[in-house]
Write a protein that binds this DNA or RNA. Structure first.
Lengths: 196, 196
DNA sequence: ACAGTCGTCTACCATTTGGTAGAGAAAGCT
DNA sequence: AGCTTTCTCTACCAAATGGTAGACGACTGT
């Protein structure tokens, strides 16, 4: 219990907001989860909106760092590079769907908030799009609109990672083996979709 | 104003639940939207939960009918058939993101509710999986786990249709031409992902 | 030793939420 | 006509929500 209260609040709020939705999670619920009085939340984050902002910024940062590291460590082949990013994102995403779920929440938030997060993530996005464009020009990826391809990859990964229901309906179970298989199919799917 | 009150309530609730989330939409908001007193809602649907159920059932039915018709009208080539389904779903999905957004809401709902919807949609899913399996056996689709491929296709289409934010970040605009282009890229993406 | 500030708490408050009770208009049935 | 059913409404209510005010203890620096 030595992690600072503020961090524990952020962590709990991230999970709850990401899985149940911002509007559906009350400050009381978060406080109870953290094991603290509601007013302690309001001490660290003067309003719910401030908390939401902080959670989004932290999540965007966490994702950025994760993806950045993966890209830096990967080799030159574009498909391998994409695979590296997915491997990096996949584990935390499935184990903590809230992280990507949060990104998804953004479309429901007031535009101002959404814009801020967009701005936070846009360097990442721009780099990805430029990368796709370059590899397409070199003939190492199927030629297409790189912006939309980026969105489609994002939609596929986020969708599959945040919607256990869609997988449950087809009888998939979240075991360790199931996870490996899912990741394998996801990678094969994207490789096929992107290969020249 | 001649459409029955009950239908107008269902319609408004579908849109609001699908775009903002079930928990975030109050009965008052729906009532105001419909232009009726809250108690009129509670007359037609004894509780909010009943309303949610009804909305889900109606949405599942609407989707089923739409997809069914598309499948029936399509020719035999599996990729063409898949394209037909996507074309059928795409227009209403982008114009009324609530429809697919609702399906996505399910993962946040109590398990009992989710199970009911799963049951409603499972014939559709089973048929799709069987179809994929058969076409893979015939060598007309890339060989893979048909259940996971179905989920991946679903994630891609739903993700791209319900997340205008993801598209805005890459600078896409929802014009008529933009929509056509988006659909084109989506189809090319899936064709590439599924082709043998 | 002591003033201050930091972190957490209890006690409230106004508003909103899902829901109940029941009145009243309109229309059909006898 | 009278009676019942169908539909919509106004008037409430208890619980939960986001947020304010301020007390209390524990630790600082002087």
């Amino acid at each position: 219990m030595k992690t600072p209260t503020r961090d524990r609040i952020l962590d709990a709020a991230t999970n709850l907001f990401g899985t149940r939705g911002v509007d559906a999670v009350s400050l009381d619920v978060i406080a109870t989860e953290v094991g603290v009085a509601k007013q302690t939340l309001l001490y660290w984050f003067p309003s719910k909106d401030d908390l939401v902002q902080a959670v989004l910024v932290a999540a965007a940062h966490e994702l950025s760092v994760m993806i950045d590291a993966a890209v830096r460590a990967a080799n030159d082949d574009p498909l391998d590079r994409i695979e590296a990013v997915i491997r990096a994102v996949f584990r935390p995403a499935v184990r903590r769907p809230a992280l990507l779920g949060l990104v998804r929440e953004v479309s429901r938030l007031p535009t101002a908030t959404a814009d801020r997060l967009s701005a936070d993530l846009s360097p990442l996005v721009d780099r990805a799009v430029a990368f796709l464009q370059h590899e397409m020009d070199e003939g190492r990826l199927r030629r297409a609109d790189p912006r939309l391809v980026a969105s489609l990859c994002y939609a596929t990964v986020t969708g599959i990672a945040t919607e256990p229901e869609a997988l449950r309906v087809v009888g998939w179970q979240p075991s360790a083996a199931g996870l490996r298989q899912l990741r394998g199919e996801l990678l094969a799917f994207l490789r096929a979709a992107l290969a020249p």
